[in-house]
């Protein structure tokens, strides 16, 4: 796709060059040529350019025909960010501008949709911020919480909260951040899968009132038994 687009633009450039080099034969010829150029821009090139711009990650396209040129520009900030974002997601910089791989990508370029997308991203970011922080299982196996931990205890990032037994080999379940041990999401001796959420970690400022939480008291009991 990107190659096709670039090819198309380059071809238009070559046409323009050829027209400029041709000898100017007089005013009538020039007027005729201008009319021809304008109608060509309006009827042939513009619709194709609009489609190309919409499907691309480019912010602006300009073409010339004779002495006339047309420049198309996307609503501010649309194209570049889209292309940048995509390439970082794909991890393939070479493919970054190939936003045309799916219609959804191409459609996201009207201003309205762009606003929706930004709103969605904002909502997502807020949701992520509010998500509880959880220590997850490093492997598939049997979970055992650490005996000397309990709900309400302060832990540092990297502290061991328990283990997952993988065929007799224990892999550590560690706290992902500094915080306070919260609700346990798996029981001692429970079979757990890779990535399963095991122990919640509350951030210190949120940890007040933890003892009043019934579920957490239950979790404390479970942790205490182990």
């Amino acid at each position: 796709m990107p190659q096709d687009r670039q090819g198309g633009t380059a071809a238009a450039g070559r046409d323009a060059g050829a027209a400029a080099e041709s000898p100017v034969a007089g005013l009538d010829a020039r007027t005729k040529r201008d009319h021809k150029a304008i109608s060509r821009l309006a009827d042939d090139l513009l619709p194709a350019l609009i489609a190309k711009l919409a499907a691309s990650g480019l912010g602006e396209i300009e073409v010339r025909d004779g002495d006339w040129k047309a420049r198309l520009r996307k609503p501010i900030g649309t194209g570049d960010r889209k292309a940048g974002g995509r390439s970082s997601v794909d991890g393939q910089p070479g493919h970054g501008i190939s936003a045309g791989r799916s219609p959804s990508a191409a459609l996201a370029h009207s201003a309205g949709e762009e606003r929706d997308r930004l709103a969605r991203e904002k909502a997502q970011a807020e949701e992520t911020a509010n998500l509880p922080i959880v220590a997850t299982s490093p492997a598939v196996g049997v979970f055992q919480p650490r005996k000397d931990t309990a709900v309400g205890m302060h832990v540092r990032a990297g502290d061991r909260l328990g283990t997952v037994d993988v065929l007799g080999v224990r892999e550590d379940v560690v706290a992902p951040v500094d915080g306070v041990i919260g609700l346990s999401l798996a029981e001692a001796g429970e079979a757990v899968e890779y990535g399963q959420e095991l122990v919640r970690i509350e951030l210190p400022e949120n940890s007040r009132g933890l003892a009043a939480n019934g579920a957490d008291r239950e979790a404390a009991a479970v942790l205490g038994e182990a």
């Binding site: 492997a139 598939v140 993988v166 065929l167 080999v169 899968e193 890779y194 990535g195 399963q196």
Partner: peptide, 22 residues
């Protein structure tokens, strides 16, 4: 169904401990 590891096959489909433990 059970998740046995990350996308990297060496830690999932090629990991004997992960597969057998599952």
């Amino acid at each position: 169904a059970i998740c046995i590891g990350p996308a990297d096959a060496r830690r999932s489909y090629l990991s004997a401990p992960a597969v057998i433990s599952a």
